[in-house]
Design a protein around this nucleic acid. Structure first.
Lengths: 241, 241
DNA sequence: GAGCCAGCATGATTTAGATCAATTCTGTGT
DNA sequence: ACACAGAATTGATCTAAATCATGCTGGCTC
């Protein structure tokens, strides 16, 4: 019995569906080749495995080919704070550039295939490919922007707005990879959502129920269908004040 | 009458007290010279002036020589969300790298002198000075880390913990520039603090009062003296759970 | 100096979400 | 196929912070 996973694994960046997201568009074929040689394509990793731990030396950043990842940091008191969820085509691991040490821990939320981009090699080849360096700074800046959106969400919004925003964020990110924007499976638990959004599990669960009773979504455990996307947006961008 | 401000203005990066913070240490003298030529040193800007607006084209990042800056973004509903406070020696404006457009607005909180680092020129010279590029990625990663700290704060902490954390953050950043870590003047209003920490003005005010009654700080309007730094730390890193 | 406004403090009341508690569901491993 | 620990839902109560309200202060203009 052959593994079905092998079929979806690209052998290189040229034929990877995700390359539009993780690589600069203007990269010519020979540059792509050089880059291709640097990137290490790992075999799929099981659910709930560690990719790196907080405190680990920074070696690489990672692009997701399939699956999903959460990153979190441990605060002084030992409690977790989820800092991000990452979907296919997205890159994570930047937190290690400062100090050459990861401040976050990253784990798989489901079976996940990664491309590893070793940072030492990356620096060396980006010297001859300035566009790549700029692209990576862009990606870091994107991460900054998304963190700031989360800050805005946490600082000001109600539980309903937070959950609605998360659903919409997932939806638009899935759409970008040409997957359904209205029907998907949440890769993370309610507890992870709550932690990420600064809410308790109970509150998250109640909000999901309320959204269902308002006919905004259908949800069966982790399967989500967005029925009224406009209604959800209206809720996310509070008409308040 | 000569302006006293002129005295503290460095004419170049060599004699700037801040350079240890905003430039890589390993930069040799000739590299520093080249960089020096690119940087534009502005004259002091008054309080409550805009440095850039959200939506402005991205031209430069800025290092603070003296004064203080806040950055904030405007959400869909028109409300402000303060995303950061910046003190001397710190660099802000990264948010523009993505899309070549600033997502934040930056304003001065008091009279402020800036060094402007035009990004186009920066890219050109960093090609011959790889260490500089790495340093700037480091700085961005630092910003990412500090955003994530704020996220942790907003997601989980009580009003007292949030305010204590902000005071400690300001304290340690002032210390880094060899200023007093225990006596300083808050450059921002209670409203800004509240907005930044996701609290109302009233709550911020009450927490300040409570901290005074606990003999953790002395405070008269914006003048702060930290009396019991350990106590404040204990409060910031909640012993909870 | 009178009057005005913004910033800050403080008291009374309300409320959203946390906490506590109990039950059902489900996926996972033997 | 079974058993069991963790995940999710739902309900009852409690609480921290928001909201509403009022007064104080200090800087500003006229």
């Amino acid at each position: 019995m052959r593994s079905p996973i092998l079929n979806i694994q690209p052998s290189n960046c040229h034929n990877c569906r995700m390359s539009a997201l993780c690589l600069p568009l203007a990269l010519d074929s020979s540059s792509l080749d050089r880059l291709d040689k640097v990137i290490e394509r790992g075999r799929p990793i099981h659910k709930n495995k560690y990719i790196f731990h907080g405190g680990d030396p920074f070696r690489a950043v990672y692009a997701i080919r399939s699956g999903a990842v959460k990153s979190f940091c441990i605060s002084d008191d030992g409690s977790e704070q989820v800092t991000g969820f990452y979907l296919p085509g997205e890159i994570f691991g930047w937190d290690g550039i400062d100090n050459n040490t990861h401040s976050n821990t990253a784990t798989t939320l489901e079976t996940t295939a990664l491309c590893e981009i070793p940072f030492a090699r990356f620096e060396e080849i980006s010297r001859t490919m300035p566009i790549l360096q700029k692209h990576f700074m862009r990606l870091m800046a994107k991460e900054l922007t998304s963190d700031q959106e989360l800050i805005g969400l946490l600082a000001k919004s109600s539980a309903e707005e937070r959950v609605a925003s998360l659903l919409l964020s997932l939806s638009s990110r899935l759409k970008r990879q040409h997957l359904s924007a209205t029907q998907f499976r949440l890769p993370m638990s309610r507890a992870d959502i709550g932690n990420y959004l600064g809410l308790t599990v109970e509150t998250v669960s109640r909000v999901f129920s309320r959204f269902q009773s308002f006919d905004l979504i259908l949800c069966d455990k982790k399967e989500i269908e967005i029925i009224n996307l406009n209604g959800l947006s209206a809720l996310a961008h509070k008409p308040k004040v």
